[in-house]
């Protein structure tokens, strides 16, 4: 038996918004630790890794590990029926269940909506993402600022080069209409920690990425005030949004473009 109750259905809704344009389906792996989703885009260029820790739920019970194979567009339809302040409870029988139940309760407890979502068998391979990668450059910034940079620059071109040097971090883009270069610098004096920009550099780093995927990643901005972008020569970029203090995270990995 699996049963988990989250006080804010909106958190789950935001997680779905953060992944559904990039991947169409995935296994939500449920264990005592929490709920984990790992999925790659169809081109196998990027990967999203979501973790919702058990302690981030009001109630969490998972007797046996199970994978809920879900078509994300369908789950999105169900979650769109949740009210802004609704709580959500997800229930499923053990492995082999055909459906999962989603129940939304209004904050006053006077409106309860229940859906049975059809599950599917998804053959998904888990990629072994190394945990011990050391990155030569890390940029921490407000997630709204990251979203704006990507949104602005993606109108100019479809490839962006991120360069971190002692002068700051620059995002360079070129396209048919011309070129753009946006440079940000560390700003650790901002009043609120969430408004600070922190650029950490072990060594100057310059890598090129497809803008299309970075645009997908900005969909997670509503989940977190800040985003951390970690890059190193010739390894995948990591874009990480933490959910709350302890609730979990959405991490995206993106293979760089490399000049051969």
């Amino acid at each position: 038996m699996f049963e988990a109750r989250m006080a804010q259905a909106s958190t789950l809704k935001k997680v779905l918004e953060a992944v559904k344009d990039m991947v169409s389906e995935g296994n939500f792996d449920c264990s005592e630790e929490g709920i984990c989703l790992q999925a790659m885009d169809v081109a196998h260029v990027s990967l999203v890794n979501v973790l919702l820790r058990a302690q981030g739920f009001e109630m969490f019970r998972c007797d046996r590990n199970l994978a809920l194979g879900i078509q994300l567009a369908n789950l999105s339809k169900v979650l769109n029926c949740a009210g802004k302040d609704d709580a959500v409870t997800v229930k499923a029988e053990d492995e082999g269940a055909d459906t999962a139940e989603f129940m939304f309760e209004s904050s006053k407890g006077d409106r309860i909506t229940t859906f049975e979502l059809t599950l599917m068998d998804i053959d998904s391979e888990h990629l072994g993402v190394p945990e011990d990668t050391t990155y030569t450059a890390v940029i921490k910034m407000p997630s709204t600022e990251f979203r704006r940079i990507i949104s602005d620059l993606s109108t100019i071109g479809d490839t962006v080069t991120i360069e971190v040097s002692k002068d700051g971090a620059s995002f360079q883009v070129s396209g048919d209409i011309g070129k753009g270069n946006l440079c940000i610098q560390s700003n650790t004096a901002a009043d609120k920690p969430s408004e600070r920009v922190e650029i950490t550099m072990e060594e100057p780093t310059k890598q090129t990425y497809a803008m299309r995927y970075l645009s997908f990643f900005t969909k997670a901005a509503p989940l977190s005030d800040t985003v951390t972008i970690s890059l190193s020569p010739d390894v995948p970029l990591v874009v990480e949004f933490n959910i709350g203090e302890e609730v979990g995270y959405v991490k995206y990995y993106l293979a760089p473009k490399i000049t051969e």
């Binding site: 790659m40 196998h44 260029v45 990027s46 990967l47 990629l127 072994g128 993402v129 190394p130 990668t133 490839t159 090129t208 497809a210 390894v235 995948p236 990995y253 993106l254 293979a255 760089p256 473009k257 490399i258 000049t259 051969e260």
Partner: peptide, 14 residues
């Protein structure tokens, strides 16, 4: 022109 790499190859390499 830079060539887009496949993510699986990276993680296989690591």
């Amino acid at each position: 022109t830079p060539v887009q790499n496949d993510l699986e190859e990276f993680f296989a390499m690591c």
